[in-house]
Write a protein that binds this DNA or RNA. Structure first.
Lengths: 206, 206
DNA sequence: GTGACCGCCTGACAAATGTCACGGCCGGAA
DNA sequence: TTCCGGCCGTGACATTTGTCAGGCGGTCAC
């Protein structure tokens, strides 16, 4: 038998991380060589342990999974990346693929399929949930401009326009205008609704 | 050796559910006899398989984990309940304990401790993260009245006051007043902020 | 070059939101 | 009983929010 596939696991929830390790260790051709809980630990640990495939969660402290994907692909091109995420948000898939991910799996998929996804990614194939891929293509890229995204992202905290304007160094009128544009583009009724829609589509990463 | 502890797993994310099953099956004295993905499947499946301990996630479709706890304790009192949740929200812990849960574990805890938690719960002990327990006591119960909670819960969708008033069969002024009270009690600046705070504390379950 | 277009920025105005003071209702304390 | 306090419901008022028309600067096609 050939050498087993060496895996790095990155997930901020220790219980999930450990459980995934147990699940994947059941496969004789897979071995977990590293586990980290933060996005900014991915590259150092990968350089130290030299995994063949990295399983990265999107929601992580320090550095989100998409940014970690880009950093890891740059630092260790031989290591494939399989993004594993809770939320099947179109924007996440798009951004992850643009960042160089080789596969994208949501945590709803049956456990038995995970090992196969790892093997396919390791073999150089792309792994993507077909339904999510279709939704991503249908949704299209984010219609929001950079400033609109930034304003909406800041508005998540629930502050008033005056506060947003202060932190962004803009006039209140400008902030209101960006918010209005975002509301229109997302088809929302509200600032709060616009935040919800944009977040659900994965347009507020970062 | 005595009979192994029989487990029921309830989590809406198939991958996490399967991974937890793999993790717990490594222990010789534990055996997973049932897995469900929805809260409303917990009681029927438990009645069919007769587990000793049920591991329930809080966030589930059909019936949330707290309601499932209450239903399970009523339908099968011999089965202990260990609630396993992503978010360490004070309100969740309080509500779960009031519903009759025997233990409460967040998904941040190390994987090795999960099996011990199961054994302790099975032995009749209570298992609670001390830090979360302290935070729960410090935070206290929800300061929101029933109506305020209901209005705030409905306001999550991001609708306008007129819509809220229509769905709740109230006057617009009344809705505004409840929202204002909720904003004051949560220390928020905004309706949106109040929703965030209440949700973070686990005050909007249901 | 120049015109069309797009994103960014801003102030004025209408519409919504949040605050306040008030009255009715119910349950417990004096 | 009567009083008190909490919750619910409501309308009037000030504040905040969302919309609109418009000015400025850059880029691309022609």
């Amino acid at each position: 038998m050939t050498e087993p596939i060496r895996l790095l696991l990155a997930d901020d929830q220790a219980l999930v991380r450990g459980a995934l390790a147990a699940l994947l260790s059941l496969e004789p051709d897979l071995t977990v060589v590293a586990e980290v809980s933060r996005g900014d630990e991915v590259v150092p640990e990968a350089l130290r342990t030299g995994p063949d495939v990295a399983l990265l969660d999107v929601e992580m402290p320090g550095l989100d999974g998409v940014a970690a994907t880009a950093a890891l692909r740059a630092a260790l091109p031989s290591c494939r990346v399989l993004v594993v995420t809770t939320f099947g948000r179109p924007g996440y898939l798009r951004r992850a693929m643009e960042a160089g991910a080789n596969g994208f799996v949501v945590k709803d998929t049956p456990a038995r399929q995970l090992a196969d996804a790892v093997r396919r990614v390791h073999a150089g194939l792309r792994v993507v949930d077909p339904a999510l891929a279709a939704e991503t293509l249908a949704t299209g890229p984010s219609p929001l401009t950079e400033r609109e995204t930034e304003v909406l992202r800041t508005a998540r905290g629930g502050g008033t326009v005056a506060e947003l304007a202060a932190t962004l160094h803009l006039s209140e009128g400008t902030v209101r205008n960006h918010l209005s544009a975002a509301i229109g583009k997302t088809g929302a009724r509200n600032r709060a609704d616009a935040v919800r829609v944009a977040e659900a589509n994965g347009w507020l990463l970062g």
